[in-house]
Design a protein around this nucleic acid. Structure first.
Length: 422
DNA sequence: TCTGGGGTCCTAGGACCC
DNA sequence: TCTGGGGTCCTAGGACCC
């Protein structure tokens, strides 16, 4: 048996833990640059705020109902997430941290320990709430996909725990879930399924296996099995997927960028972040991809988007080297005369740093580079991000982002710790 | 005026090997 | 007239997730 624990409007809940005035009020959390809504309280949803809504389109709504609006505070959310996960670990060490706000747990046998699956579900919620302040929903079922169905059902019925264990309860649940709400069915597949007369999860579970495989590959087939109670998606515990297979950094610009130099400065900044992430997980990259694009929402602008991948001669985690090749890639795809809105850097082909294959004709002094990167990471960790930086990043600050109102780093910075007083 | 950022997995097809 | 069979590796592109 699996359980999924899903935090309710996680970012909003994190803010509410440290600012109880926000309880029962419409609260919005915004994306980078305060561009769009990425989390909202039920009160805000009820007033018509949709997930992903651009802020400028709902300004009236915000002021009319005096909504509380916050920029995202990932230092806080990340730390709160860790607390939630630690709490869950006290129930079972068999945990898959699936995202910042949800986790799967292997709960086999725990029904006896807690009396019933329902009681286990409520215990999970209660403890997380008590230890972290974050409200959650719990789904318990024989497969991961069915636990997700359970969460949907709970949301729909305004409940907090949903157990799907016998054929009847599963069948009933599947009938009430439209195909597009199945975990793993996105827009494309949903449209295709509707065309084929399959409207809800139950219809899908009754479809012919070969037909599913033919049109939706093994991914679809696994979902099909999972909905029928046959577990195909194992718990992926931390150790198995601790290391990322691809690492990236990208930003949308506040104002469009029209000059190559400015794009280069932005890319140098992204390469710096990517380099830091690489060294943190002790990986080296074999290729680097750069992409740039204009504002796709602006019809009047001429549109251009392109990407270029460069194979590196030797796998590296060295920031200046990443920057060097990123610039090469940019030179290939850059076109003058466009207003660029977004750029990004991706690295892939990651290998463990200690197994990096050397190149016979490589004349870089790699040991020296490794030491200089180590020194840079240590200084920046102590003195602040980007205190030591590549000149290529420039000092133009075109990489700056807008953050209107952001709460304190209550849990990760002594300067910003919450004060309790008169 | 103003629309986020960061990931995973699978498949088909090309290039290559014996 | 007739030209095999079995395999690996890599990449681009498509689908999906939070």
């Amino acid at each position: 048996m699996f359980a999924i624990i899903d935090c309710n409007q996680f970012y909003v809940s994190c803010e509410r833990v440290f600012n109880p005035k926000l309880e029962n009020k419409p609260v919005l959390i915004l994306s980078n640059n305060d561009g769009c809504v990425i989390a909202s309280s039920p009160e805000a949803k009820q007033l018509g705020v949709k997930m992903g809504a651009p802020v400028f389109k709902i300004r009236e709504l915000i002021s009319k109902y005096h909504m509380e609006v916050y920029s995202s505070n990932y230092a806080l959310y990340g730390d709160m997430s860790k607390r939630v996960m630690d709490t869950l670990r006290s129930f079972s060490p068999d945990i898959e941290v699936y995202s910042i706000d949800e986790a799967f747990l292997n709960v086999s046998g725990l029904d006896r320990q807690y009396g019933s699956w329902e009681r286990l579900g409520h215990q999970l919620r209660t403890k997380v709430r008590q230890w972290t302040g974050v409200p959650t929903r719990v789904g318990i079922a024989p497969t991961k996909t069915l636990t997700k169905i359970g969460i949907h059902l709970a949301k729909k019925n305004g409940e907090s725990v949903c157990v799907l264990k016998d054929e009847n309860s599963i069948k009933k649940a599947l009938k009430s879930i439209p195909v597009e709400d199945i975990w793993g069915i996105g827009r494309q597949y949903a449209a295709f399924l509707y065309q084929s007369g399959i409207k809800n999860a139950y219809h899908f579970s009754q479809a012919e296996e070969n037909w599913v495989k033919q049109h939706m590959s093994v991914v679809g087939l696994r979902l099909h099995h999972e909905l029928r109670g046959l577990s195909c998606l194992p718990l992926e515990t931390i150790s198995e997927h601790a290391n990322k297979k691809m690492i990236g950094s990208s930003r949308s610009f506040i104002k469009p960028i029209c000059h190559l130099v400015e794009l280069k400065e932005a890319l140098a900044t992204y390469c710096t972040r990517v380099g830091e992430k690489l060294r943190k997980q002790q990986s080296c990259a074999n290729y680097v991809t750069v992409y740039i694009r204009t504002n796709r929402f602006k019809d009047v602008d001429h549109q251009y988007a392109n990407a270029q991948t460069i194979q590196l001669p030797v796998a590296t985690d060295n920031t200046p080297e990443l920057i060097h090749y990123a610039f090469q890639a940019l030179d290939i795809i850059y076109r003058e005369g466009y207003r660029y809105k977004k750029a990004g850097v991706l690295v892939g082909g990651l290998v463990p740093a200690y197994t990096c294959q050397q190149n016979l004709f490589d004349n870089e002094n790699r040991q020296k580079h490794i030491k200089s990167m180590q020194a840079m990471d240590i200084i920046n960790a102590k003195m602040g991000r980007f205190v030591v930086r590549s000149a290529a990043m420039g000092y133009r600050n075109s990489g700056e982002t807008i953050r209107g109102k952001v709460s304190n780093k209550y849990t990760s910075d002594w300067e910003e710790i919450i004060e309790v007083g008169a």
